[in-house]
Design a protein around this nucleic acid. Structure first.
Lengths: 145, 145
DNA sequence: TTTTTTGGTAACGATTATTGTTACGTTTTG
DNA sequence: CAAAACGTAACAATAATCGTTACCAAAAAA
């Protein structure tokens, strides 16, 4: 299967919005910048809106903009808003009920997954959209120079 | 696509091996305990063998056993051995080359992914197979009582 | 009020990764 | 040499993502 890149795509979209936090960008504009389809933009933005990261405005002059300042939005916010599938998964099939290990395994793995994902989001929470935008502009300057 | 559960499956297999670190288990035995197919066991064990976590023995009396003591194998070892796809992914399509943000995005995201996955594996490194087996047996006792 | 411009969302197909399965080769033991 | 195990290629079924089309709803402007 294609692995989900919604987090990467979401960060990209939001970095674009961070350039002008006060104005709306249309899904067409964002789709052109990222070479994807406007419906893909709207789909992902729907999740981000539900999480309170962006707000949308219909009709002429409308579009999407950040709901908070770039420095108030962390990558953990983005991750939790858009990540549909978690990085670690239980098997779909139930284990053998006669096996003591198998019976206990599911609960143990869930605990482990919870701790591991907490570690992941804690790290993501250390970076804000403002950091991302700054890095992007710095890289651009370095590359142009 | 079905999300990969190789890490969960691997931990389960290795917990079984941890019960008797000195003896070989056949892929048939492991497959029965976990209600999966022997080829699935062998496939996953091949990765774990390449990583030096288990060793195999062909022929009668053969099978798979741990290459080190359970307390010397961490879940980070398992994760790094079997995780084919990473939890975070870049988009497959290249971004717009005319966009300063898009150009820089890929490198920035790679840095972020590296830090996030390091945080994940650091957390996984805190748990050993010995811990997992102990938790499993404790849960089994609690459930039986 | 009508038209235009936007987002919202359902539905479908192409693509792709995972898993289970079969089949067959290889190695080791006895 | 026979039997028991792993090693691995190949294929189908399943499932998830993404792009795309189509159409609705809402808001602004004419």
């Amino acid at each position: 299967m294609p692995a989900s890149c919604q987090f990467a795509t979401g960060v990209h979209f939001l970095a674009l919005l961070s350039q002008s936090p006060d104005s709306f960008l249309t899904s067409n504009e964002i789709a052109e910048s990222t070479l994807t389809h406007p419906v893909v933009v709207r789909r992902l933005m729907a999740s981000l809106q539900e999480a309170g990261v962006v707000e949308t405005q219909k009709g002429p002059g409308g579009g999407v903009r950040l709901a908070r300042l770039p420095r108030q939005i962390t990558l953990a916010d983005v991750y939790q808003a858009v990540q549909t599938s978690e990085p670690l998964h239980l098997p779909h099939t139930e284990p053998n009920k006669n096996c003591p290990i198998g019976q206990a395994m599911q609960g143990i793995l869930e605990e482990i997954f919870t701790r591991a994902e907490a570690a992941l989001t804690n790290e993501l929470a250390r970076t804000t959209l403002s950091d991302v935008l700054e890095s992007a502009l710095a890289r651009h300057r370095a590359h142009s120079a």
